Amino acid sequence: MLQHQDHFHGSDLEKIEKIYGIRKEEIISFSANVNPLGISPLLRRTLTEHIDAITAYPDREYTSLRQCIAGYCGCEAEHVIVGNGSTELISLFIQIEHPKKAMIIGPTYSEYEREISLGGGTTLYYPLREDNDFHLNVADFTAHLNENIDLLVLCNPNNPTSTAITRKDMRLILDVCKQHDIFVMVDETYVEFAENMDEITAVPLTNFYNNIIILRGTSKFFAAPGLRLGYAITGNPDLIKAINTRKNPWTINSLAVIAGELMFTDTDYIEKTKSLISKERSRIYEAFASHPDFKAYVPKANFMLLRLLREDMNADEMFDRTIRERMMIRNCSTFPFLDNKYIRFCFMEPEDNTRLMECLMRK
């Protein structure tokens, strides 16, 4: 086994190729959390047929695209902001709000803390408890909110725990944040994978609260990370104006506009994705939940967190074992509050999932 301390992101296949001598094309990435169906056949055909779109600038207001997103999300088009991936929108929002002190629920995605730090702010973490299966205790959490906090960041469903906050609980959180003048940024990158998406998404709350912004993208659910198409939803007109004023024009190219307008109306692809993930999520969770070597946490998104229970098992060894069989999982020891006993993997095609399970469960 290699003794290096590298920890790999889902997009780091080139590093894997160099260290392990395995061609990246041979690796199935269970680490990237991307829809295993790939881009839809309809999208593939349409983009090919519209290649001439790059000869003209897109609509600067992205009116048609925002209308498609609004129809897909069930919100007003005026509440939608589009950007070059959700990462750009996170950065713009942090620059505008300029929080001095932010609270993040962890373990979670590291980009939030990075952007806050670049803006000169500091970050506090509220830890999800393992003895509560990483579910948020809303009453205890809201008791920790106060006027010294400017911003609350929530990933919902959360990465890497795959737990989720219901809209009912989100409303309670927003009420307390309103009292303390705290703005709430909710990253819903994985919400479309959730079985009970209608109970989780906070989009309807943007009609009643002006202290919330919701971020989504097309990288994971629509399997298009290279498209760099993200969007935000908020009912705060001042924030919308500030972001649009600061945002560079034409940050989304003409082909991405066409792709976006098609994606959000591709009901066949959307339903196939939801059906596949739902079936595999149940099958895989049940298999690991009944196995004595693992603690499986009930997943809401398209990935699952596992704790390794045997003393002779750790995340380094599991990563090494799976990558040698051309499968890449995520070692979660770099996430706050997790250690070398946690791994995460997403749900792929059934036959690939079965192969991964057999590899992980092997004595």
Rank of each mutant, 00 (worst) to 15 (best):
I104S: 01
Y72C: 02
V34C: 01
F8E: 02
Q67M: 07
I69L: 08
E76R: 07
P99M: 09
T63H: 01
T63G: 10
P41K: 06
C75G: 02
L89D: 03
N33S: 10
Y72E: 00
L37F: 10
G21A: 05
I19A: 14
N33L: 10
L37A: 07
G10D: 13
L92P: 00
I39T: 11
I94Y: 00
M103Q: 00
A32P: 01
E78G: 15
H4V: 10
P36D: 10
I28R: 11
P99Y: 06
C68G: 15
E61T: 15
Q5G: 04
E97C: 05
D52Q: 14
I27P: 09
E17P: 14
V82R: 02
P41V: 14
E88D: 10
H4M: 07
L42P: 00
L89S: 04
K100A: 10
L42Q: 03
H50F: 13
F93T: 11
H79M: 04
V80T: 08
R23M: 10
V34N: 07
H98M: 09
T87A: 11
T55A: 13
G85S: 13
L2P: 13
T55P: 00
D12I: 11
M103D: 01
D12H: 15
S86G: 03
T63C: 07
S64N: 08
T87C: 05
P36C: 04
